[in-house]
Amino acid sequence: MVNRNAFFIFLAGTLISLAIFLGLTWDTHRQVNALTHADKLSEEVVAGKHVWAGKNCNECHTILGFGVYYAPDLTKVYKRIGAAGIKAAVLQPEVTFKNSIRHMPNLGVTEEQATQLVAYFEWVSNIDNNDWPPQDRQAGQSAAQRRLEGSAGLSAGAAAFKEKCMGCHSIGGAGGSIGPALDKVGTKFDAATITKLIGDPPSVVPGSRMPPQTGVSAADRQAIAEFLAQQK
């Protein structure tokens, strides 16, 4: 062989890199159960993964950042919009995303499949993935950290609104489009009514599809309501 040395360089370079790669693959398998909380990987979660694959969700959405960039990343969707939000999106996309600039097709997801998807997303949201994605990082922080960051530039009510409400609602064009924009909400409701609405939406707006925000503390509800009542 004319190029004996060149060939050996090729072989050595390949084998060194391959050895590192396979060694770390072994290490990944060793650690992955702890990093992904595999003990919580129940049959329902796996059923949810089958629904995820069967409905081709990954062809519009990303998860762990992989897939397609047409629709939001769903790695932390469970922490962002919760079980009720996920169900509203997959069961009635044409209603939920009516005002969105991009629509989601109705994929014929059943109630049972929606529950399985929720289990799947809950499990995925707890994977220890170095706190990605940045836009959902708040969800992984402690309440104290969030409050510290939020209050640095905002009032307590605005900070809580940004954290708890903007996934669905917007002000000044910033925020989600699942729920109505709240730019002029202060002209319709006072603070006490808004506090009541957050905890039990149909009691104020009959037929409202907004899930009761049981995860928002009483103090936060009060602060959010005071902030929103000023939006006139």
């Binding site: 190029n3 060149a6 360089i9 890199s17 590192i20 770390l24 990605w132």
Partner: peptide, 25 residues
Amino acid sequence: YLETALFLFTGLAGTGHHYYWIGAP
């Protein structure tokens, strides 16, 4: 030989740039 050596040397272990945010070590 030399170019493919470099391609594989960097590319095999370089797969790691997809493993930052997936729950791998």
